[in-house]
Simulated assay, not measured.
Amino acid sequence: MSLSDLRPVPADQLTFRLPRKFEDVAEERRHRQERLVAALRLFGRFGFEEGVAGHITARDPEHPDHFWVNPFGMSFKHVKVSDLILVNHDGQVVEGRYHVNEAAFAIHSQVHQARPDVVAAAHSHSVYGKALSSLGRLLEPITQDVCAFYQDHALFDDYTGVVTDLEEGKRIAAALGGNKAVILRNHGLLTVGESVDAAAWWFITMERSCQVQLLAQAAGEVVPITHENALLTREQIGNDVVAWINFQPLYDQITKSDPDLFD
Score class of each variant (00 low, 15 high):
P249Y: 07
D157P: 04
A38R: 01
Y150W: 08
D90K: 12
Y128L: 10
G73Q: 14
A230H: 01
S109R: 03
V212L: 08
S195I: 03
I85T: 12
R137W: 04
I225C: 06
G91V: 06
A154D: 02
D117Y: 14
I204P: 00
T57H: 15
D12V: 03
Q110V: 15
L84V: 11
R20Y: 00
L232F: 06
R137H: 09
S126L: 10
L14F: 02
F16G: 09
R32M: 05
L6S: 06
G161I: 13
S134T: 06
T255G: 01
Q144N: 10
L214D: 05
S133Y: 04
G238W: 02
F46K: 12
A131N: 12
A121M: 09
E140R: 07
A39F: 02
R35I: 05
P61W: 15
R137Q: 09
C210G: 02
D12C: 01
A230Y: 03
S75R: 13
E34L: 13
A26R: 04
I237H: 06
P224A: 01
T15A: 07
A216S: 15
G238I: 05
G54S: 09
D260L: 12
F105D: 05
A198W: 01
L42I: 14
V196M: 04
F76N: 11
H227P: 02
S209Q: 07
I237N: 05
V69C: 15
S109K: 04
E207W: 05
S75L: 12
V37M: 09
E235T: 08
A38G: 04
Y150F: 10
R41Q: 08
F76L: 14
L214H: 07
E102P: 11
S124H: 07
V162W: 09
A175W: 07
S75I: 09
G54M: 10
V94R: 15
H125V: 07
E23H: 04
R32V: 02
S4G: 00
H63W: 11
L84T: 08
